[in-house]
Design a protein around this nucleic acid. Structure first.
Lengths: 128, 128
DNA sequence: TCTGTAAATGAAAAACTTTTTCGATTAGAG
DNA sequence: CTCTAATCGAAAAAGTTTTTCATTTACAGA
């Protein structure tokens, strides 16, 4: 999703497209699954509180996804659906798009699924 | 896993089976995926710091699993492999054992999988 | 383009959560 | 029964996130 489109989404929800929000968005676009400090490092001109608030707003409108991969919260642009592969040895996080999930197999008759998350833990090639 | 077996595991790793640890274990046995405060409420005689330390020890020896389901850390006895169904409306968490996952489909040639977690979010029957 | 106003910002403080420190206590091996 | 390393609890420290509030600003409407 281009920045322009996100700006439209922000305004459409009655929020303002401030320079700070754009700076955070640009920071998020540089790399997926960043911690708060990593994001901050990419837009040091934005105050800490504003980064927190911006991530809240962007999550609320569905532009950002908050992750919990075991080591504190991480954030990423919610572009395409994907999952994470986490190396427990070096901490490296990578992504994969294929979703090896067959929800029909579960037979969730009374539950209306809106999303799911899948994380795979193990040792990456480099660490083996 | 019976309490007795866990005690053996604790001692086998060089840790001591203290009354506080047993109290935390009993609290964990009462309900899955509890928050720290819920656990504390079930064993108020154990100091806060000791609960944290006990959860660390029990996680280290594989008796406890720490979860991140979006609302702060939760802990549960790592008995059988299972996943979570989270209602985004009322916050209710339930479990399911069937694992609708086919890891072979992913073709993770260089990654040695040790575990995985899967969470399904949506609206439960009662909230629809 | 200008204006008015609700929304947003930043800094400081508050509120929470988790970890560290350290002196006192205790499980459990011998 | 004794001894000692492990553990405990309370207080303090450290770290994280939220709230408060006075000031600034985006942007809709004139």
């Amino acid at each position: 999703m281009r920045l322009e489109a996100v700006v439209g989404k922000i305004r459409g929800r009655g929020y303002k497209a401030t320079p700070q929000r754009l700076a955070v968005l640009r920071a998020l676009a540089e790399e997926q699954h960043q911690s708060l400090e990593e994001i901050r490092g990419r837009c040091p001109e934005v105050g800490l509180v504003t980064v927190y608030r911006t991530l809240d707003v962007l999550s609320e409108i569905g532009v950002v996804r908050r992750l919990d991969l075991g080591d504190g919260p991480r954030y990423e642009l919610a572009e395409e659906h994907h999952h994470h592969l986490i190396c427990e040895s070096c901490g490296d996080i990578s992504e994969f798009e294929e979703c090896p999930l067959d929800l029909r197999r579960l037979g969730l008759v009374d539950f209306e699924v809106s999303s799911h998350s899948l994380e795979i833990y193990g040792r990456c090639a480099g660490c083996r």
